[in-house]
Each structure stands twice: as structure tokens, then as C-alpha cells.
Design a protein around this nucleic acid. Structure first.
Length: 152
DNA sequence: TTGCTGACATGGT
DNA sequence: CACCATGCCAGCA
């Protein structure tokens, strides 16, 4: 019973998450939590992670159609933690992630422990609403978030 | 079926 | 600055 309905909710969630991620501009990054807010569920940043973990790879077989959303058309690499760190999650997972970001000119720093981080003050992208839902913003000055409150 | 894990975030110590 | 506890809930054993 609730199984079917539940499935649809889950599908809708995945769909919303993937679409939101596709709106992240090239060369910019945002956080799991921000994606969660953009899709209306600020309390579930972890579920955003679940979506990315289950993001399929594009089909290598030309005769088959690739999944609607796959690692080839969803910029998964532009989603990192709110602290600007790339979650280890695997032995070489983070480095792959970093490589993908550097490929689009995003500067990835490395801590002494090998922790990979990105300066959110410069590459972060945190709009209040998705551009697609903002009704094609016509102008207004872009928000300069240079204020990067760094206080080391 | 039940229970634990985890591509996170936030607030407290 | 670093840990620790809690909320969330889809996957997976």
C-alpha cells in the first residue's frame, strides 16, 4: 500500500534533487544542505547525499539509452559539504571529486592530512531560489559575497 | 521484517 | 578549532 506511494515520493525527491544540481553553474559549487533547501526539504541534507550515491553512470552501450539522470549530465562534483570540504567517503573518492572540479577551473586546496577543500567564499553558489523558479531573473546586480567572513 | 549505516547540517561542550 | 549528540530517512544486510 504505502509502498507505491512512497516510491513516488522518493522518485519526486530524486528528480527534484537532480534537477536542482543541474542548475549549479559551471565552475561553482554548493552544499548538500543548500540543495536540500532549494528543493524544499532543508531538514534532509543526508538524503541529497543518498541521491548522489545512487546516481547511475551513463550507459556505455550505444544501443541502450542512458538513464535520464546520470553522472554524465548531472554535475555531482559541484556538491560538497557546507564547510567546503570534500567528504572522503572512499580511498580515492575525494581525489576523483577534486579532479573533476579542477577540470572546470575550481581551485581545490589540500590540507596537511590530505583533506580537499574549496573556498566557498569564491566558488560557492547559494541562491535563495533556483534560477528556473526565479522566473528568469532579468537583471539586478549580482550578489557579491566577497565578504567572506574569514577570521582565522 | 528489523535494525544499522551514512556523498550532511547544526548546535552545544 | 575539534569533538560529540541529534535529526533525517533511503538503502542494504
Amino acid at each position: 500500500m504505502a509502498r507505491g506511494e512512497r516510491s513516488e515520493e522518493v522518485w519526486a525527491w530524486y528528480e527534484a534533487v537532480y534537477e536542482a544540481i543541474q542548475e549549479i553553474p559551471h565552475g561553482r559549487v554548493t552544499s548538500y544542505g543548500h540543495i536540500a533547501r532549494l528543493v524544499g526539504k532543508p531538514e534532509r541534507p543526508r538524503q541529497v547525499g543518498v541521491c548522489l550515491k545512487n546516481l547511475p553512470s551513463p550507459s556505455t552501450d550505444p544501443s541502450k539509452t542512458s538513464p535520464r539522470w546520470n553522472s554524465g549530465n548531472v554535475p555531482w562534483q559541484r556538491v560538497i559539504s557546507a564547510s567546503g570540504r570534500i567528504s572522503p567517503r572512499g580511498p580515492s573518492g575525494a581525489s576523483r571529486h577534486a579532479a573533476a572540479l579542477r577540470a572546470e577551473n575550481v581551485e581545490v586546496n589540500q590540507g596537511a592530512m590530505g583533506e580537499l577543500t574549496v573556498d566557498l567564499g569564491r566558488f560557492g553558489w547559494f541562491p535563495d531560489v533556483l534560477p528556473s523558479e526565479a522566473g528568469l531573473v532579468e537583471s539586478s546586480d549580482e550578489e557579491n559575497e566577497e565578504e567572506a567572513a574569514y577570521h582565522t
